[in-house]
Computed example of a mutant assay.
Amino acid sequence: MKTIQHNRGIILAVIFTVFLSSPLFAQDKPERCVRFKDGTTIRGTILEMNADVIRIETQSGITVAHPFDSIDYFCDDYIKNSQLPAPEIKRVPKVVLPRHTWEIRPELSYIKYEEPEIMKEDGFMYGIGAAYTYHNKVMARLDGRYSYGKVDYKNSGTLNNIEDYMVELRMIVGYDFPLPSGLSYVTTYFGFGYRYLNDDSSGMVSSTGARGYERESNYYYSPIGVTTYTSLGNGWSYGVTVEYDIFWKGKQKSHLSDVGPGYDDIENDQEYGDGFRASLKIEKQVRYVSFFIEPFFRYWSIKRSDIERDSAGRAWVEPKNKSTEIGLSLAMCF
């Protein structure tokens, strides 16, 4: 018990010392030696230390994060008090994923929607996303994005500058698997997602005289995927994500009443389809924040819907379709 109290006293004393040596009190931060309960010993500059995490920049330039409660003792202070020999320092420290991460993510993308041999729309979307991620062996992430743009319609006629906007919400959970190198993780995950797309050409007329109308697309799906993280040193890292989307249900609402009297609004249910997405993230840690660039690819393929009839007995169907989105995200994490 005396040893535990002694170690806790050393840790509290060092916390006070690190606080006094922070930028508020000094310009230069001395290197510290920290021993963890798993036997890892790291020497470097302490960038951050609080009740949740200790973040250290090692002598080789790698930024390492550990849960605060995994600290065994601070070597320099322990040696001074106990006269024990200095422990061996491992040159390849274990990287720990940050426990709490908030993310703000502007993005630009090109999107193309096609109903084969019938029509297509394409254009650019401008968006903003935000996410919160938790890591502690178990991973949990909440993610949302909104994007807006204008697309051009083409079939036998054309109609340009149709306003589109999209909202997507996702919740995933998974597990982090550290790799033997100590510098990489593989995370598998599964979750639930909702995607809403509004395509509004109401009040517009195509080059052939056809009147436009508002369309609403709803997808309910489950993402299942793998994402990686690898530290490159000097605050740099990269990761790859590959995901398959299980399509549960789709609902398409066509506001045909926008065309004129005698037309009813129609809802078509879609039962079959799937999706795929992939991305490459390159990240740079700068003290307490990080920045990353992430090119991405998102794809959906949806089968033909069921048939619905309006009040006049006319049959309406949503044709099989596919959509492809290619873009780039620029984000800040803290």
Rank of each mutant, 00 (worst) to 15 (best):
A13D: 12
V14K: 01
T17F: 05
L24C: 08
E31L: 12
C33M: 13
C33H: 08
F36S: 04
D38T: 10
T40D: 15
T45F: 01
E48D: 10
E48S: 06
E48P: 01
A51Q: 14
A51E: 13
D52F: 02
A65W: 03
P67Y: 09
D72M: 07
F74K: 03
C75M: 11
Y78L: 03
Q83P: 01
E88S: 13
P93D: 01
V95P: 00
R99T: 12
T101R: 12
W102D: 00
P106G: 10
E107T: 07
K112Y: 04
E115A: 11
E115T: 04
P116S: 15
M119R: 08
F124A: 12
F124N: 14
I128F: 12
G129P: 10
A130K: 05
A131D: 13
V138C: 13
V138F: 15
D143P: 01
R145I: 05
V151N: 01
Y153W: 11
N155R: 06
N161I: 09
N161A: 11
D164R: 01
Y165N: 15
V167M: 11
V173D: 03
G174E: 00
D176S: 11
F177D: 04
P178D: 08
V186S: 06
T187C: 14
F192P: 06
G193W: 00
L197W: 11
L197Q: 07
S201T: 04
V205L: 09
V205S: 05
S207N: 05
T208I: 09
T208G: 04
E216D: 15
S222R: 00
I224P: 00
G225S: 12
G225I: 01
Y229V: 02
N234C: 07
G235F: 00
G235A: 03
S237L: 04
Y238F: 12
Y238N: 05
G239R: 14
T241Y: 02
V242A: 15
V242W: 11
Y244Q: 02
I246N: 00
W248E: 11
K249T: 11
K249Q: 14
Q252W: 03
S254D: 09
D258S: 06
Y263D: 01
D264C: 10
N268T: 14
G275L: 02
R277F: 04
A278S: 09
A278N: 02
L280S: 06
K284G: 01
F291W: 08
F297P: 01
F297A: 06
S301K: 08
I302K: 00
E308W: 10
R309W: 05
A312V: 09
G313A: 08
R314I: 03
A315P: 10
W316M: 09
K320R: 03
K322M: 11
E325S: 12
I326M: 15
S329N: 08
L330E: 07
F334Q: 08
